[in-house]
Amino acid sequence: MAEGAENEVAELVAAAQRGDDSAWRALVARYLDLVWAIARGHSLDNCDAADVTQTTWMRLHEQLPRLTEPSRVGAWLATTARRESLKVARERRRQVPVLLTERYGERALSALAAPPADESIRGADSERDRMLWQAFGELTPSCQALLRALTADPPPRYSELSAALGMPIGSIGPTRARCLDRLRANLLSLSAPTGRSETGDTGGKARRTTTQTEPTEREVS
């Protein structure tokens, strides 16, 4: 990403440090979805992801006066979100009732860790959406974390992703490609029994146009 964007972020941080509320709001608008996507990419449900997101912003707020590299605030947020997510995910795994794991073994664990179950995804209304989330949920945790963080709006920089995933910048591109191929393979195997019936959903195009207006609305607020 251009140096200009880094300067812009650094200026926002500097202004927020001086107590400029509009600068703080701009930082939230810029990075809220990234923090959320990181939490979701760690298989957290809505409630836990909300906790992680809130804690991460509180941490930034308390650290704001001490932030030494203002241009790296995105990477800082990503790292904090990842750490908090791993902590909550670990706690959740420990809370799996003992009997459940005894009876069903590790599968019970992975089923509970599986992200976006139908009811937690608010807008997933069509069969096609559900199938894509399901195929996504069958990816390895590291693939889920990477792909979900990449979907953040606005898209994160690779330096921020690298921090979010604890992964060298150079391996993000190749890993992304591998994960997408796996996602595609999962989709294929899910759709195999019923053939291509679910692809006849023509409502997709209409929805696509409506979502494009969302980012601008958010920027204004």
Partner: peptide, 26 residues
């Protein structure tokens, strides 16, 4: 990729109250 990105952005945004809480911190 485009299908996944579109799906995530359409159906899994941070809830309003989470956004409000972060905005109001300051």
């Amino acid at each position: 990729w485009r299908r996944l990105a579109e799906l995530a952005r359409r159906t899994d945004r941070p809830p309003r109250e989470v956004e409000d809480a972060a905005l109001a911190l300051n």
